[in-house]
Amino acid sequence: MKSLLCLTVNGRQREDAVAENMLLIDYLREQLGLTGTKQGCDGGECGACTVLVDDKPRLACCTLAHGVAGCRIETIEGCASTDGLSRLQRAFHEHLGTQCGFCTPGMIMAAEGLLRANPHPDQAEIRAALGGNLCRCTGYVKIIESVEAAASMPEAA
């Protein structure tokens, strides 16, 4: 059964008829076509589906769309602006934080959540914040270096 869902996705207010049993990841990917958010393990174990809900990183595969009614949702598609890539996107690009790219949207959203709560994290804090995100390519070192580099960039960049 569908009912009306009001929320904000990447800065745009939306009112959509959404099935009550729809997961947030399916709402984003299937209904809105925002396929940047990846479906990995599909059970809350890999972090590939991480999106921001009111600035906090959450797992879209373990969240009902109606459970975030009234919230601000941000996905990887909302990171870049007309001025270019976000600092995390640029840092991942410049410091080789991405290889196959499948975990990258989740990694960047989890890191974005960290930097908003804690603009100058140390390496232990970065490792803890990304503890729920799996990557099978990089070995994590380049990812952590990317987040460290992003944290040292000026915010507006």
Binding site: G47, T50, V53, R58, C62, A110, L130, G131, G132
Partner: peptide, 9 residues
């Protein structure tokens, strides 16, 4: 409990 992202929910 679980990972950092789980604990937010």
């Amino acid at each position: 409990v679980a990972g950092p992202t789980h604990r937010q929910s």
